[in-house]
Amino acid sequence: MWFRLIPAAMSSPPATAWIWGRAILWLGVYLALVLAPLFVLLAESAPGGGGFWYDLSLALGFAGAAMMAVQFVLTARFKRMTAPYGIDIVYYFHRYLAVVGVLIVLAHPIILVVADPVYLTYLDPTEAAWHMTAGVVSVVLLLLLVAVSLLRRRLGLHYDEWRATHAVLAILAVGLAFAHIDGVGYYVSSGWKRGLWMLIAASWIGIIVYVRLAKPLLLLRHPYRVVAVTAERGDAWTLVVEPEGHAGMRFTPGQFAWLVLRSSPFAMREHPFSISSAPRTSGGVEFTIKELGDFTSTIGTVQPGEICYLDGPYGSFGIAGSHAAELVFIAGGIGIAPMASILRFLAEQGDRRPLTLIHACGSWSRVPMRDEMTCLAERLALRVVWVVEDAPPDWRGEVGRVDQALLDRHLPSDRTAVEVLVCGPMPMIDSVEHALYRLGVPMGNSHSELFDLV
């Protein structure tokens, strides 16, 4: 399913002091948010008397609940927050942190039960107080939430169905955790400690309102109209959209946007795709999308005049801020889409740097945008290397996959002066990045972006 999520696959421009500064700042803000309940516990004398394990369990419970609440912030797509890392890293952080957070949350009841088995009685909803049952159900829902996300494909769960399930389970789990904390009232019953938890709960509700209501409403007020749908080789389609009554999207080449098509922005049926056009004064954008799934297989049936909505732009993949003497683009299949955006932009800018594009596909007849790349090669100092697995009889180009030997043949001799952008399926990105490193391309000079999240 990488096609749906990875066309956005991209990477980050060269790290600068500014980017690092912002990255550290936002990480600090995150830690402050998650650790705030613990700092509060430390700052004031607490009831005490429960013993070390009881207090450890309690602290882990508070921190786990705060982590789960802040998980909502990570996927709210705040551009300033995600920009220093690239939104892909933030989504992956959200994913790994969910596992860490659930382990911390689980430790809360396990430590209590091990320290004193009498706490097992709280598992019985007929005996336990409502807020204890709320805590138990919250933990069960969190486990379910993580399991469903990690096993989505094995469970055969459709992406849209998973998203809706994920949102409902997450809201219920965190809501019940807050009810549990409030109901127990230990450490939070007095004055400003209660105020802090009220503030955390209110902020969490605020994020939900922003993501589920305010943002969709904003998208609804900034519609786009489909002006063309054209077929590309390899079961791909180029969708051209123009803004309806607003300025449209200002993006940098290589970025992506979430597309809402034939659905309401409130319905959570959106899919990320790389923009394949260069920035336009009209604010319009083009997406080149391969037919590979339930949603993408309907792109060819879209008619000019249909309304759609875009949430974006996002992503830090591209050449913004790059001063490399030479650029190399490596694309797998529909991973050519963001490369097309960058190359079209460079052509418009009259860029004369030596450029190499290595584009790998299954067969020559199914290479998307190959005519466009041929045209761009005439306008730029661009050398295009097509790599096909299933070569025609008269084929004299590269055959197979993009491996270290192939890269060694086509990379410029000065590997330290080149910047490489990679976009394609996850296994390809992994193997190409390793090969580039072994061939002497500094790690900071090779860029990719992850979007195969669930």
Binding site: S11, L27, L56, L60, G86, I89, Y92, Y96, L97, V99
Partner: peptide
């Protein structure tokens, strides 16, 4: 490589939280 960055950040965050929780419990009972 970018996935490793996210993994490292997540694990480091978890360790920081657990360390602070242990510190809290120890201070409460010392």
């Amino acid at each position: 490589m970018r996935r490793w960055l996210a993994r490292i950040l997540a694990v480091a965050t978890g360790i920081a939280i657990i360390a602070l929780a242990v510190l809290f419990a120890w201070l409460q009972n010392s």
